[in-house]
Amino acid sequence: MSQFFETAGFGLVTASIIALSAVGLSLQFGVSNVPNFAHGEFLTLAAYGLYVGQQLTGSLLIGALIGVVVGGIAAYLVNLLVVEPFVKKGARVVVLLISTTGVSLIVENALGGFFGNTNQIVALPQPVAHHLGPFIWTTTDLLVMLTAVVAITGLYLVLRFTKLGKAQRAVADNRVLARACGINTEQVVAITWVAAGVLGALAGISLATSGGSFGPGLGFGFLLVTFSAAIIGGIGKPFGALVGALIVGLVTEWSAFYVSSGYKQVFALSTLVLALLFRPSGLFTTLRGPAVD
């Protein structure tokens, strides 16, 4: 039984990382209505930002800050240079699927070419284990969970109470009407991409520091669990993704412990398939009701 909880403890850490990534993806999809298969690269680029920053300054914190900035800029550029031009031309979803996947491949291979395909090591202080109730967490684990809680709470407050956040929700609901209200929808969408990039970056930094090392495939390998969580939560509903992340995080860690760690992705996908069998448009279909008229 104690192992059940210990594993649940890992599950919560994994869930926090998935949540950061999936909430970002879901937010970006909800507001811009474009699927982004390059989302994983925000994680990867941020991890390399962390690595380079740490190499240059010797500080993990400065490395992390650089990683966040890199993730935000990368997302801004993907929207500006790839997604918006296609959207303006009225491209279909499949075109965006292919072009963002292309971006992902280019970034991954460029990083491999530049840094080599071997793993980079993140230098970490000696891990300290904390026993909290039935759970055992390292300091890094606690920081990762804290980051997720703070970032996602912050996002909630922005969306709920600020003018920008309300405009983001308005654009998500109806872009044409938002524009007719005087909202610069392109700008709101661009800001949303940056937010998604920053959340993805936090996920990538968390992933790299929890794992201790990473390679150019870091983010792409995490895309499946990210999409699973986002879709289980009802894609486009960032706070649904939070619940999706909890489910996927716990299921994958328990499956890794009780079955085999080789099957994590299989279990993530099975969870997704099961969830979709019962709720084809995600668990939180009621958050946004039927289209008006």
Binding site: K166, R169, A170, A172, D173, L177, V292
Partner: peptide
């Protein structure tokens, strides 16, 4: 058609 923001409250619609 589609002349309000369905998931926003009435007040938020007016704010927009």
């Amino acid at each position: 058609v589609a002349n309000v923001f369905p998931s926003l409250t009435v007040r938020e619609n007016l704010e927009m």
